[in-house]
Every structure is written in structure tokens, then in C-alpha cells.
């Protein structure tokens, strides 16, 4: 982007559910596996705690830290890739997840930003987030997934 030196993507979806259910879907491993291509997160969701995103085969994809956790409204993570050297070398990105109830639905906004121009990490995750959010919406609204894992 031209206005700052950061790379940022913002993803927004509206899901017909409650903030509490959506928070559970975002933070429970059992649920996460169903819409996040079989991956799950390991953390206790307390500020300052470590956070990991783990592949189905147990390899660690990404690591970081819980910066803020205010259920069921706002979650902020420090997020670094672990399995691709060119992405890992960029260091930590910041992922902010916001839940806002609107007219019987919840507006879910995910802002993923890296203080680097043309971040490769932000480019890499930008293809994944829309699919993850479509899966999550479909799972919560219909009980089915749009994609397999």
C-alpha cells in the first residue's frame, strides 16, 4: 500500500450466529480442524501466552503470542511463519480478529498486517483467509463445510 510502509489485508464476513458461538469456533481445536484445512491452534488464549498453528501431521506451521484476548469481541496475535525460511525471516506479523454483533449476525473482521512493504507472509496468508472464512461461515450457518479438509 502507498500510504504506509506496511502490508495489510482486511477480510470481512457476516455470519448468522452469536459472538459466543463464533468465539468458540475460532478458539476450539476441535472446531478449528473442521474449517482450517485440518489445522489446529495450541494456546491457552491468555495475553502473553504462546500460540501455535499446527498442521494435521503435527508439524508447526506458525508460532506467536496472544497479545490481547477479550472474549467474545477481540483477539490480537503476534504471528510468524515457521516452515518457510523466506517467510520466517520477515519476523512477526500482527493479526487482529474483531467480532461485532449486527442485526442478528456477527461481523467478523480479520486484519493481518506486517510492517514491511510487499510482505511475502501477508501474500501467502492472503489466499488462505477467504477460504477459511467461507468454510467457517458455511459451517456455522448450515452445519456443513464448503470445502473438505
Amino acid at each position: 500500500m502507498t500510504s504506509t510502509v506496511a502490508s495489510t489485508f482486511v477480510y470481512v464476513t457476516f455470519i448468522r450466529t452469536t459472538p459466543e458461538q463464533l468465539w468458540t469456533a475460532l478458539t476450539s481445536s476441535e472446531f478449528t480442524r473442521q474449517y482450517w484445512f485440518g489445522m489446529h491452534q495450541e494456546t491457552d488464549w491468555k495475553p502473553g501466552s504462546s500460540w501455535q498453528l499446527v498442521f494435521p501431521d503435527g508439524r508447526v506451521a506458525d508460532t506467536g503470542e496472544i497479545v490481547e484476548a477479550d472474549p467474545p469481541k477481540r483477539l490480537v496475535l503476534k504471528w510468524r511463519n515457521e516452515f518457510k525460511p523466506e517467510l520466517k525471516s520477515e519476523g512477526y506479523s500482527r493479526c487482529t480478529i474483531e467480532l461485532e454483533p449486527i442485526d442478528g449476525a456477527v461481523k467478523l473482521s480479520i486484519t493481518h498486517t506486517m510492517d514491511l512493504p510487499d510482505s511475502k507472509l501477508i501474500g501467502a496468508v492472503s489466499g488462505g483467509w477467504p477460504r477459511i472464512l467461507s468454510n467457517l461461515k458455511s459451517l456455522l450457518e448450515t452445519g456443513e463445510l464448503a470445502l473438505g479438509t
Binding site: 482486511v10 477480510y11 470481512v12 464476513t13 472464512l133 468454510n135 464448503a146 470445502l147
Partner: peptide, 12 residues
């Protein structure tokens, strides 16, 4: 910011 999620929903 472009938000591609609704287009992805339609594609899925």
C-alpha cells in the same frame, strides 16, 4: 481494502 470473501463464498 479489497475484501475477496464474498466472491470466494460465491465461488465455493
Amino acid at each position: 481494502f479489497i475484501n475477496p470473501v464474498p466472491i470466494n463464498d460465491i465461488a465455493e
